[in-house]
Design a protein around this nucleic acid. Structure first.
Length: 271
DNA sequence: AGTGCGGCCTGTCCGC
DNA sequence: TGCGGACAGGCCGCAC
């Protein structure tokens, strides 16, 4: 579900409540996630202090004084801050209880999310070690995309959604960035010019920053730490707007299945 | 090496 | 009103 802007919104939202606080208890209600949640989590985390929260792509990394908790929200996950004794709802799988009476609650109906504990440097964790560059860092440039895409035949949309190349861009923002850069989503990645990739790199940064400013996009499940929704949905230019007029030229937005994912584009603006 | 697909889950919506 | 099927924001692991 959540892409980089929703994960970053979550990180910013929850951190002030729990930074520098100590864990007093962990409640595991459901450990069957994408990977099993370690049953030893309560013993491992008890008494530890949360130093801060990092993000890498769509992963949140909770840095504790003696290790790190790595969390992925999957397709339908969300994190909220609740008061102790708030009755759990369906699919509230894990609670992290902090000494200041704040509870971080992990909710995930589809259970595609995951929780991992590591005592190594978190970036060495097998799931993090293989992921690509951060889109909002200086690493993302037209030159980078151009170089990495040479001889690649995959659709450019799949290419920018490949988390081993670029971390954090999912279906919504891939569609939106390609619209901004005026590139057809199905165009083979290897046949796009350096100039177009410069536009695309710019568009990706622009769309992600704009979405973060609006608190992310809520389509169905996503909620912020206080249970409110993200407001970027109103700003979407092509995503989930099939047969509606392009905001630039009024041509009707088309859909196409690319790599099993719905894709939306303007057939006139995007070449 | 790059590519394309199956599978993991629940919830919702649509057509019959 | 019920039921089957398609679809949904992700991504690993596998076969080719």
């Amino acid at each position: 579900m959540p892409e980089l802007p929703e994960v970053e919104t979550t990180r910013r939202g929850i951190e002030p409540y729990i930074k520098n606080k100590h864990i007093t208890a962990i409640i595991l209600r459901e450990t069957r996630m994408r990977w099993p949640v370690p049953e030893s989590l309560p013993e491992l985390l008890k008494g530890q202090r949360l130093v801060h929260i990092d993000r890498r792509g769509k992963y949140l990394i909770f840095i504790f004084n003696q290790g790190a908790l790595i969390l992925h929200l999957g397709m339908s996950g969300s994190l909220r801050i609740v008061k102790p004794n708030t009755p759990p709802r369906k699919h509230d799988h894990v609670d992290l209880v902090f000494a200041n009476e704040q509870v971080l609650r992990f909710h995930d109906p589809r259970r595609f999310g995951s929780l991992h504990w590591t005592e190594q440097h978190p970036q060495q964790h097998p799931l993090l070690a293989v992921i690509g560059i951060e889109p909002l860092s200086a690493d993302l440039s037209g030159d980078f995309l151009h170089e990495k895409s040479r001889k690649r035949k995959v659709a450019v949309k799949n290419f920018i959604m490949n988390s081993r190349i670029l971390a954090g861009v999912g279906n919504i923002y891939a569609n939106e960035a390609l619209f901004l850069a005026r590139i057809h989503p199905n165009k083979p990645a290897g046949r796009i010019s350096l100039n177009q990739y410069k536009q695309l790199a710019k568009a990706i940064k622009q769309i992600l920053r704009a979405a973060i400013r609006q608190g992310g996009t809520t389509l169905r499940d996503f909620v912020r730490e206080d249970g409110t929704r993200g407001y970027f949905r109103q700003k979407l230019r092509v995503y989930e707007r099939p047969n509606l007029p392009c905001r630039r030229c009024t041509t009707l937005i088309k859909t196409l299945l690319i790599g099993q994912r719905s894709s939306y584009f303007c057939p006139l603006c995007q070449k």
